[in-house]
């Protein structure tokens, strides 16, 4: 259970960054941390003690493999994460061009 808890702590660090930091890049970094922690958690779920990676080296091999499904899912999730991070950063870049700051408290034209 400890590895799971490690993921949860990493998750909380990500939340911490998003919640308390005011710099857009820091928020994006916190967001990446969130994403890593969830991916890691998912990958841990499929881990099986003393089992091999799910690749057949030869045909007569014994079938003691780790769970391949979470790996497949995490593969998808990693790529989705990359996509969202890229989009987030491009918006951040454009915001800097327009507002000349990364401070989230200065970026408040939309209110009420």
């Amino acid at each position: 259970m400890l590895p799971y808890l490690g993921c949860i702590i990493l998750f909380l660090i990500g939340i911490y960054a998003i919640l308390t930091k005011r710099n857009l890049i820091k928020i994006a970094i916190g967001f990446c941390l969130l994403e890593y922690s969830v991916n890691l958690f998912f990958a841990f779920i499929g881990y099986k003690k003393d089992a091999l990676a799910p690749i057949y080296a030869n045909l007569s091999q014994a079938r003691n493999f780790v769970d391949p499904i979470p790996q497949a899912l995490v593969l998808t999730a990693i790529v989705i994460g990359l996509g969202t991070t890229a989009l987030l950063l491009s918006v951040a870049l454009r915001i800097y061009e327009k507002y000349k700051t990364f401070d989230i408290k200065e970026i408040k034209r939309l209110k009420e």
């Binding site: 919640l19 308390t20 928020i27 989230i104 970026i107 408040k108 209110k111 009420e112």
Partner: peptide
Amino acid sequence: LRKIQSGILSDYLFVIF
């Protein structure tokens, strides 16, 4: 009530959490 919508992201996240 309109005052809650202050325009600052961290305030929003504060309420959301």
